[in-house]
C-alpha cells in the first residue's frame, strides 16, 4: 500500500424509493487515490457495483466545483464532511486515511424526503423563493445601472448573503431542521439593497410563512447551520431576518 492510495470501509444509506424503508449497507472502497474527490470515490464504488450487477448508489451532483449546490451527503455525521467551507464535491480523499470507516447518509430532514439512497427532494427551497425571494421587476424599462449608487459596504454585505448555493446543508445540520439560514440569506441579500426595499415586509412575511408551511423547524441559536455552510454565511443574517420579520409583523397589524 503506497501512501497515495487507501482502503476504506463505507457505510452507505440505501433506500429504494420514498415509500420503502432504508438501511445502511457496507462496502469496501479499495485503492482509493488521495487525489480523488469524495464523489469520484463514490464513482469508483459504483463502477464496481455495476460490474457485479448490483444497483449503483444514487447521489445528487452536477458541477463538481462547489457552486451548483446539487451535491449533498452527510459524511460521518457532518453535512458536506469534515472540511469547513467545502462542499462534498470539493472534499478530497486526502482528508481521510487508510482504514477509515466512513458513514454516508442523505440530508436528514422531514421537508427533504428521500427519493432514493442519498438523493433527497429539496423543492421546498424553490417554493420558499417563489413566494417572495425576488424583486418584482419585469424585463425592460429598468433605469440605467448607475442611476442608483449603492454603498460598496452594502453591496459587499449583500453579496456575502447572495452567495448561498441552496444546498440545504444548513437544514441537515440543524437539530430542528430549520431553514432559517437559507431564508435569512435571501432576505438579507435583497434587504440590504435599495432595490429590495419596496417589497421588504411582504417578502419576509411570505417567505417565513412558506418556510413554516413546508415543515421546517425554528431557530434555537445553535449555529450548526453556519458551521457547515460551504459559503460560510453567518448567524448575523438570522438576527437580521428576525428583526425584519418582527418589524414587518408589527407594521402589518
Amino acid at each position: 500500500m503506497s501512501e497515495t492510495t487507501m482502503n476504506l470501509t463505507l457505510r452507505v444509506w440505501r433506500q429504494k424509493n420514498a415509500q420503502s424503508a432504508g438501511t445502511f449497507v457496507e462496502y469496501e472502497a479499495k485503492n482509493i487515490s488521495v487525489d480523488m474527490s469524495f464523489l469520484e470515490m463514490l464513482d469508483v464504488v459504483n463502477e464496481e457495483l455495476t460490474a457485479r450487477g448490483e444497483d449503483p448508489i444514487a447521489f445528487d451532483h452536477d458541477c463538481r466545483e462547489g457552486i451548483c449546490g446539487m451535491c449533498s451527503l452527510t459524511i460521518n455525521g457532518k453535512a458536506h464532511g469534515p472540511l469547513e467551507a467545502t462542499t462534498t464535491c470539493q472534499l478530497h480523499m486526502r482528508s481521510f486515511k487508510n482504514g477509515d470507516a466512513i458513514t454516508v447518509e442523505p440530508w436528514r430532514a422531514k421537508p427533504f424526503p428521500v427519493i432514493k439512497d442519498l438523493v433527497t427532494d429539496r423543492s421546498a427551497f424553490d417554493r420558499i423563493i417563489q413566494v417572495g425571494g425576488f424583486v418584482s421587476v419585469s424585463t425592460g424599462g429598468a433605469p440605467d445601472g448607475n442611476a442608483l449608487p449603492i454603498p460598496k459596504t452594502d453591496a459587499d454585505a449583500a453579496m456575502d448573503a447572495a452567495q448561498c448555493i441552496g444546498c440545504g446543508a444548513c437544514v441537515a445540520a440543524c437539530k430542528n431542521a430549520s431553514a432559517m439560514l437559507f431564508v435569512a440569506a435571501k432576505v438579507g441579500h435583497l434587504g440590504l439593497l435599495p432595490q429590495g426595499q419596496t417589497e421588504r415586509d411582504r417578502r419576509v412575511l411570505h417567505m417565513v410563512a412558506q418556510m413554516d408551511e413546508e415543515g421546517f423547524g425554528n431557530c434555537t441559536n445553535i449555529g450548526s447551520c453556519s458551521a457547515v455552510c460551504p459559503k460560510e454565511i453567518g448567524q448575523d443574517f438570522i438576527s437580521r431576518l428576525n428583526r425584519d420579520f418582527l418589524k414587518a409583523s408589527l407594521r402589518a397589524k
Binding site: 425576488f134 421587476v137 448607475n146 447572495a162
Partner: peptide
C-alpha cells in the same frame, strides 16, 4: 440593457466606494 435589468433585480455587482458599478 442586460446590466440595467440585472441591477434592477438586485444582482450584487461589484461596486466602487462612490457606489457606482
Amino acid at each position: 440593457n442586460i446590466i440595467d435589468q440585472c441591477v434592477a433585480q438586485g444582482v450584487p455587482f461589484a461596486r466602487e466606494y462612490g457606489g457606482l458599478l
